[in-house]
């Protein structure tokens, strides 16, 4: 018992799981007993969640959001990799650093500009998402590049690699696992943004549109049920990307053992 509160104490996986389940149950019980009035109880949210699950509307909207997110992620990764890999080339380094600073720009202020630049709602949503995600991806990937030890470059020099071969071996191949890790860490950001951009063009639907609709009618039970599904989907993708990373790059599994 004492070990549970000792810093750096090693716990078995079973104990950790039991602890998390226990804490979750306590939190749900507290929520159940303390909430009254506007905030629905967990049971009500669960009821709404299970009522939403078999509906076509729910899955259609989830699918719209997922396709949009995955499209945006794919484009963002390509843009990020292009600028991040070339950030070691002096001509592009300034541009990459500028992209990093772009994360301080708010999307709301740029909606009108993007509306003028794009042809329809679908393009608008996609371009806003990409513009929102790329600075975060580039920031993460540049920090990976700057943390590369000089010895990695030195080893390439001793093996007679030229600069482009060094870039290929150390950054493109050597840090490929980090790309998946960055996607995993930043997936939450894109998932967060999707609900916002979907509100801008509601004709295509999406989980964000659904949320706005339920919010409008103060249907808090369904709002929280959708939040729960967003949360669970996020956890699923987190697990999936983690699994993919270990499968594609087995050495990363060794590093964490």
């Amino acid at each position: 018992m004492k070990q549970l509160f000792a810093p750096f104490a090693n716990m078995s996986r079973k104990v950790i799981y039991l602890l998390v389940i226990g804490q979750l149950l306590v939190a749900l019980m507290l929520w159940h007993n303390l909430s009254h009035g506007l905030i629905p109880k967990p049971i009500k949210i669960a009821e709404n969640f299970f009522a939403l699950l078999p509906t076509k509307v729910f899955w259609d909207n989830i699918l719209v959001s997922l396709v949009l997110t995955l499209k945006a992620m794919a484009i963002s990764i390509l843009v990020t990799l292009f600028f991040a890999y070339l950030s070691v080339v002096p001509f592009f380094s300034g541009l990459a650093k500028f992209l990093v600073k772009c994360r301080y720009l708010t999307l709301t202020g740029l909606i009108f500009v993007f509306t003028l630049l794009t042809q329809d709602g679908s393009q608008l949503k996609l371009s806003l998402l990409v513009f929102g995600i790329v600075p975060f991806f580039v920031t993460s990937f540049l920090s990976v590049i700057t943390s590369i030890k000089n010895q990695e470059y030195d080893l390439c020099k001793t093996l007679r690699y030229n600069r482009w071969q060094t870039l290929y071996e150390v950054i493109i191949i050597g840090k490929a696992d980090q790309v998946l890790e960055i996607i995993r860490q930043n997936f939450a950001i894109s998932w967060l943004m999707i609900t916002m951009v979907e509100g801008l063009s509601m004709s295509e639907g999406g989980i964000g549109t659904l949320l706005i609709k339920y919010n409008k009618y103060n249907d808090l039970g369904n709002v929280l049920a959708i939040q729960l599904s967003i949360f669970l989907l996020g956890l699923f993708f987190d697990f999936l990307l983690g699994f993919l990373k270990k499968w594609l790059f087995p050495y990363t599994k060794l590093q964490t053992q």
């Binding site: 030890k149 010895q151 990695e152 030195d154 080893l155 001793t158 071996e169 191949i173 050597g174 490929a176 696992d177 790059f249 050495y251 590093q255």
Partner: peptide, 13 residues
């Protein structure tokens, strides 16, 4: 020249 660094650095990937 071939160089063997102090911590025997190799490509971890």
């Amino acid at each position: 020249m071939g160089v063997v660094f102090q911590n025997y650095y190799l490509f971890e990937w």
